[in-house]
């Protein structure tokens, strides 16, 4: 039993001690398992029931879909009554463009701020750092004004621009920290060879930043994909709706159609979960960065 929960590598101890150890291990696993169930149950419940007929959803909510109860009508309704494909596409375009530009512009700015000494350097670094703590949302009134003046309301461009501004502070911070760890000799050697500053950055430094960029990408991507505030305010139009806003509006409209509601939630959940399970290793490594001993 013990081997199931803990590695066997510990030296064998007395019988009663081993018993206590196993008991402790069981208690630890009981707590972690309980919490894992609490964390997963609501999500699984939605996924399972989205595949069932309306009757089965209410009669046996905890049951898995069987041949009798399998019903994909909800998904049909969602795809029929709303432009889910378009919303997903919008979200994808906004997220990819914003994250890509945050990475590129963030790395360039971080390089300029950490590599070169110039007037106002510290002030600018501080200005970027402020953005980590002060939410960009507080400037919404003026952002909307600005977008109206630029004729960008109801365009994906408006969202991309705001999300770049939102993502840059953390990107500059994380990438600056990383750039500081790059050995000086590398840059000096390149400079001695007469390579231009542009080429040093794009050919030497940028490839080295890849691991830190993965972290930044994940941190930037999640809030953008999940955001409701800016799509609701800057781009609520049918054509520019993102998936989070699309689901919110759809569920609001068809509250009573349980099949459709559960299916729309499932459609919004599944892509994120699949991506998460693929990239969870990188993500967790990023979150616990520096913790690898």
């Amino acid at each position: 039993m013990k081997a199931l929960f803990f590695d066997r590598s510990q030296p064998a101890t007395g019988g009663w001690q081993r018993g206590a150890q196993t008991g402790k291990a069981l208690a630890v696993h009981a707590v972690l398992l309980t919490y894992t169930v609490i964390a997963l149950f609501p999500i699984l419940l939605v996924l399972i029931n989205s595949l069932k007929s309306r009757k089965a959803i209410f009669r046996d909510p905890l049951g898995l879909p069987s041949l009798d109860t399998l019903n994909l009508g909800g998904f049909e309704q969602v795809l029929l009554r709303s432009d889910f494909g378009l919303y997903a596409c919008n979200s994808l375009v906004v997220t990819i463009l914003a994250v890509g530009l945050v990475l590129l512009l963030g790395a360039m700015a971080a390089w300029a701020l950490t590599e070169y000494r110039f007037r106002g350097n510290l002030l600018l670094a501080f200005l970027f750092a402020m953005g980590i703590m002060i939410p960009i949302r507080l400037g919404t009134v003026s952002i909307l004004n600005l977008m109206v003046q630029l004729h960008l309301v109801n365009t994906l461009t408006a969202l991309v621009l705001v999300y770049i501004a939102q993502g840059l502070p953390l990107a500059v911070y994380i990438l600056s920290e990383f750039i500081r760890t790059i050995p000086k000799e590398l840059k000096e050697a390149a400079r001695c060879d007469g390579i231009s500053e542009y080429k040093i950055f794009f050919a030497v430094i940028l490839p080295l930043l890849r691991p830190a960029m993965a972290t930044v990408a994940v941190f930037t991507m999640i809030p953008i994909w999940n955001d409701l505030w800016f799509p609701l305010i800057l781009a609520p139009g049918e054509e520019s709706r993102t998936i989070t806003l699309g689901v919110q509006q759809f569920v609001g409209q068809y509250v009573t159609d349980w099949n459709a509601v559960l299916s729309s939630l499932t459609l919004a959940i599944v892509p994120v979960l699949v991506l998460y399970l693929i990239f969870s290793r990188q993500l967790i490594r990023g979150l616990t960065a520096g913790a690898v001993k």
């Binding site: 512009l105 200005l127 970027f128 953005g131 960009i136 400037g139 919404t140 009134v141 003026s142 952002i143 600005l146 621009l161 705001v162 770049i164 501004a165 939102q166 840059l168 502070p169």
Partner: peptide, 9 residues
């Protein structure tokens, strides 16, 4: 971009 869409607003 940061100045125009975050600091200024």
């Amino acid at each position: 971009i940061y100045l125009v869409f975050s600091v200024y607003p």
